[in-house]
Amino acid sequence: MTGFLVRRLGGAVLVLFALTAILYGIFYVAPGDVAQIACGPRCSPAQVAQVTEQLRLNDPLYVQYGHFLQGIVAGRDFSTGTGVEHCSAPCLGVSYQSDQQVTQLILAKLPVTGSLVIGAFAGWLLLGVGTGVLSAWRRGRLTERVLTWLTLAGAATPVFVIGLLLIIVFCSTLQWLPAPSYVPFAEDPEQWAWGLLLPWVSLALIESAKYARLTRSAMLETLAEDHVRTFRAYGVGERAIIGRHALRGAVAPVIALSALDFGTMFGGAVLTESLFGIPGIGRELVHAVKVVDLPVVVGMVLVTGFFVVLANALADVLYALADRRVVLS
């Protein structure tokens, strides 16, 4: 088990390293005149030259990449034109727009995105697995058909469509809920929850569709297996077969997918945040993309990649733990 963990995490570190190289290549090398982008379209050639100097863009590429890596591992210093600013590890650079350190920017946004994801996660897991179990239990009946169509509809609805409709119905027309907003939990837990309710609900509704599918299909697969026949042949009732034997087969895939989704969402609940105006990582990213703030874009993509790689590794480990048939190798 330890060996498996070490190998899996070692692989994850390698993937992350490769990711930095790729991102660096795409974003700092490909777009051409980075200094012009950093300085802004209205900069005079003299200003651009100054920025080039500041960002040390005249150094060979591998030196620049070395600095980039060094910043992540050990921190680095930036010249700000007037002085030198230290950016401690893990340093992802400094925003062209706000001159803020990207790491600080991301750290400030993490609790926001975290609040959104955790609530929605609980919702979609409960709703999805519940729906899946119910439709596996009532298989071949009307309940299952209705649930299957609802699940399909859920899978076919983009989150921004359902979000828009929810806002229109509950906030504007009925005025039952305040407009979605973010209030830090530490400030006012009640406002925190009310403000995030709609984002939670819309994300949970959409995401639960695939958990329902997964749970149902895993349970139906198990129900078709020989060992279920054995327990039927020994007089074990349907409830015990569904609850004890069939559901057990769905545990491993559901846990694995949860870990994966959790990681992905952390880096990029882009749509939900943008739609509901939740100031998290995703919305910041969209903003950075629109103003071509390269360090912020690269930093956020890297952080997202980090979460996804971590979640992937976690998913593998959890799957192996939950499915005792898998031989760790």
């Binding site: 990711l19 790729i22 795409i26 990029g268 749509l271 071509v292 993509v301 992937n312």
Partner: peptide, 17 residues
């Protein structure tokens, strides 16, 4: 590595440059 790239985020980033 490709799997580790969240498509929305990468697409966003690529469209920027």
């Amino acid at each position: 590595i490709n799997v580790a790239l969240p498509i929305m985020v990468i697409a966003l980033a690529l469209l920027a440059i």
